[in-house]
Amino acid sequence: MIIKLVIILFVLMLFVGGDRGLTSFFTLVRTVLAFIVNVYLIAWGLPAVPVTLLVCVFLVVTVIYGQNGWNSKMHGAAFSSVAVVVIIMIAIGPILVRAGISGYNEVEQYEEISMYLSADLAVPMSAVAVSATVLGVLGAVMDTAVAVSTAVNEVYVNNPHFDKKVLVDSGFAVGKDILGTTVNTLLFAGFGESIMLANLFVKNGNTFYEIINSKALFQEISALFVAVMGCLLVIPLASLVTPWFLTRNNGNNSQ
């Protein structure tokens, strides 16, 4: 079934997007491979957070520059994406660890499969969980960063005399447009993912206190909230940073 759906997706992307659809498809393949490499590197015992950071940088560089070319507006997008990933790791990571998002949750603990699996892994699951959360942010962050930088660049190319404030404002304006839709994508993907858990809570008749303190709920919503936070953080950052890259580049050219 997976193979059939992949073929359908490939054919559709080819027909709707043409050559560029093909490029997108191969970007996706590369992303999948990077994801798998990331998981295996962690499983082989390399420290999860630095490895994920490296993979994030690799993905940012290949996806952003690969789809949009090597130019100063994309420097703005790439820089702000990586910056947001680092900010989230440093600012949100410790909270996640303290709140205990890692390891099996209450439900998984009593599932058959977790009884068979050895738990002596010598891989700190808290770092793995932080890495997973950060990686979940990446797609939405890159998407938003590219959109904002492109818009700022558009304004800059048409009116190079605009001062930085106008550029920053236009970045914010586009950011808002993107935000409404990206947030929807994230929220509904989250709904789709947690429908099983929500059904479990409803069927089991758990109390409100049990639900709100459960690790299962926290795992689901922290991923969702952090992804939206990343998306929101990257809008001001990309709006501020891109004009700097653009005007700096301009200064170099005129010399």
Binding site: M13, V16, G17, R20, G21, T23, S24, T27, L28, T31, V63, Q67, G139, A140, M142, D143, V146, A147, T182, T185, L186, A189
Partner: peptide, 8 residues
């Protein structure tokens, strides 16, 4: 297309 698929 490309970016949304990435997000998902």
């Amino acid at each position: 297309m490309g970016t949304m698929i990435n997000v998902l």
